[in-house]
Amino acid sequence: MSTLIDILASAGLWAAILRIATPLIFGTLGALLSERAGVLNLGIEGVMTFGAMIGWLAVYNGVDLWTGILVAACAGALFGALHALLTVTLGLSQHVCGLGVTLFASSFSYYVFRLAVPVAGTPPTIIPFQPLEIPVLSSLPFLGQAVFTQTAPTYLAIAIALVMAYVLFRTPVGLAVRMAGENPHAAEAQGVNPMKVRYGAVIVGSALMAVGGAFLTLSAFNSFFPTMVQGRGWICIALVVFSSWRPGRALFGALLFAFFDAFQLRLQTVVEGVPYQIFLMTPYILSIAALAIMARRARVPQALMQPYRRGER
């Protein structure tokens, strides 16, 4: 019992939560935006992988870290455009196309990585983002260590969640996005082109997903290796349901999830006799449990996964 309290009282745990949550926040927000406009983007896992790879590769080749993030975002946007072309313009199955984009984006990432970086004994590294020193706040006792020792992209993720909550529910653009996801025919009648709105949401959403991936290689770690995304994209899709398609709750869900993940990592080192694989399973089991608890109550965007064809009902 006292070890549990020790774990909870350590600043390291709370710092780790924000670090673990950051890629999930980016990914969940990206998926959420896209789904709010009516498009499920299962390309997320592959887009995150590609963002992680291309962002790292750009920095490895000499650009600065923020340009690396930007490169990842642009690459993500391109994959978003591909997914939108297939699912919005052609109206193909969002499940199948998303899986196709994931398979393509992840294998393409590995291909490019292998071409650019020859096989080496130790993977090459870059100098990642360093914790941001915030005057006063970072030197607070405990709180400074626990909360204000993050790298800049973490603060960016939190800011984007707040901005997205504002834009979705308080601006005409957000209204257009929600209309495209709830009732594209009504949107059309109001003079909003649901196709364009969906394109925009999928492209911006994919860019966010790729930035989430890039966080892994540019801040959390300092190198890229295949399969490093480890199902985080799928967890984001689960978190979107958990959040009931609300950015604020998505932020909360990602933090809650990261809390359990950081907690089990520390528990692994103190609990003996339990295979470590049991601990590694918990994030996936938690995601499934979250889906089971929330799926009934969640208000799904009404036109999610329904292709919109002008003049067709």
Partner: peptide, 14 residues
């Protein structure tokens, strides 16, 4: 619970 099986069956892989 009407949970979409795409994500749950995927997570079961891990």
């Amino acid at each position: 619970f009407s949970v979409d099986e795409v994500v749950t069956s995927l997570l079961m892989n891990f």
